[in-house]
Amino acid sequence: MRGPTGVTMTMATNWLITGAGGQFGSVLLAQLVSAGYDARGWVSPRGPKPRAGRCEAVDLCDAASGLALLDSTRPRVIVHAAAVTSVQAAYDDPGAARRTNVDATKRLAEWAAGHDARLIYISTDMVFDGSAAPYDESAATCPVSRYGRSKADAEEAVRAIGGDALIVRLPLLYGLPAVDRPTTFVGQLAALREGRALRLFTDEFRTPIELGDAARAVIEAAASTATGVLHVAGPQRLSRYEMIEIAARALAIERPNLTPISRTEAGGPEPRPADLSLLCRRFELLFGRAPGRPMAETMRQIVKSE
């Protein structure tokens, strides 16, 4: 399959996954390697390495070393998943978040555009304020957090630079990462099994997608001619409370120790968006299917694979 700038997708196509030490990047790299693709990852020098795939430790804020590595490896497809993803961390140090989320993204986009490489920029549903859901790809961004603003600014930079670039917005992710690092969801599964109490929002909604489903959808999108913006999300609008209820049923836990709470009880210096549900009509039109499966189905798979 040939992209707009002439990138031909074959098993020998050289893929680069930034953020390969994160939950999404690790699963994406594992899927590519398992399928036989020529893929490598970049990981933070301070973070873990994924369980599958070749990786280099790269500081995204070190422009010279990053560009030198790009010049030496010449990736044909770059999936840029690395970011400061913690809302609190982005609030506490907005300069660091901007250097990673915006400045590094600009450099990757410029390199890709200048070398006829395809760029898939992984963005977030948090570029919206949660007041007008569900959102499709044409909705104007309106973030309410410093993290969301950094991702929206990076999206704008990718658009301005142009080239063979696709912005993929992901929602809340759940599942089993292919890297040894703690995640909120894995911790919640452990709490369910141990009968520990979980306090969960009932009035904050997302369209969560399982990690493997998200990775498969991004690979499919990368191999297409799509540019612009694409939403890759699950088919259900769920609160965090509803998500863990579904997980508890999959684990055959009849009386999970769950306490419903309101997002207004969370506190914090920034507002929490009420509803960040995404519509995936463009993905469905392009590929003839929904990008994600219902959570009850994916949870059965997760339980079997543990």
Score class of each variant (00 low, 15 high):
T73H: 14
R74M: 12
P75I: 09
P75Q: 10
R76K: 15
R76Q: 15
R76F: 00
R76M: 13
V77D: 10
I78C: 05
I78E: 08
I78A: 06
V79R: 07
V79I: 15
H80M: 07
H80V: 06
H80Y: 08
A82K: 06
A82M: 05
A82G: 10
A83I: 03
V84G: 02
T85Q: 09
T85A: 14
T85W: 03
S86V: 03
V87P: 00
V87K: 02
A90E: 04
D92G: 01
D93K: 07
P94W: 11
P94N: 11
G95I: 09
A96Y: 14
A97W: 04
A97E: 07
R98L: 06
T100L: 13
T100C: 10
T100V: 15
V102N: 02
D103I: 05
K106I: 15
L108A: 14
L108W: 02
A109W: 04
A109T: 07
A112H: 08
A112K: 08
D116C: 11
D116P: 01
A117Q: 06
A117R: 03
A117W: 03
A117T: 06
R118L: 06
R118C: 05
R118A: 05
L119W: 05
L119H: 07
I120Y: 06
I120Q: 07
I120E: 07
Y121L: 01
S123P: 13
T124N: 12
D125L: 02
M126S: 10
M126Y: 07
M126T: 08
M126G: 01
V127I: 12
F128E: 03
D129P: 03
D129N: 14
G130D: 08
S131L: 10
S131F: 00
A132D: 14
A132K: 14
A132L: 04
A133G: 08
E137Q: 10
S138Q: 14
A139T: 08
A140Y: 00
P143D: 10
P143Q: 09
V144Y: 09
S145Q: 14
R146M: 11
R146T: 10
G148C: 05
S150R: 06
A152E: 06
A152N: 05
E155P: 01
E155T: 02
E156P: 00
A157R: 12
A157N: 03
R159L: 12
R159S: 06
A160M: 08
A160P: 02
A160E: 15
G162L: 11
G162Y: 12
G163V: 11
G163H: 13
I167T: 12
I167W: 08
V168H: 09
R169S: 11
R169P: 12
R169L: 10
L170W: 09
L170H: 08
P171F: 11
Y174H: 15
G175E: 03
L176H: 13
D180P: 01
R181H: 07
P182I: 08
T183P: 11
T183Y: 08
T184L: 13
F185V: 01
F185G: 00
V186I: 12
G187K: 00
G187H: 00
G187T: 00
Q188S: 01
Q188P: 00
L189E: 01
A191N: 09
R193C: 10
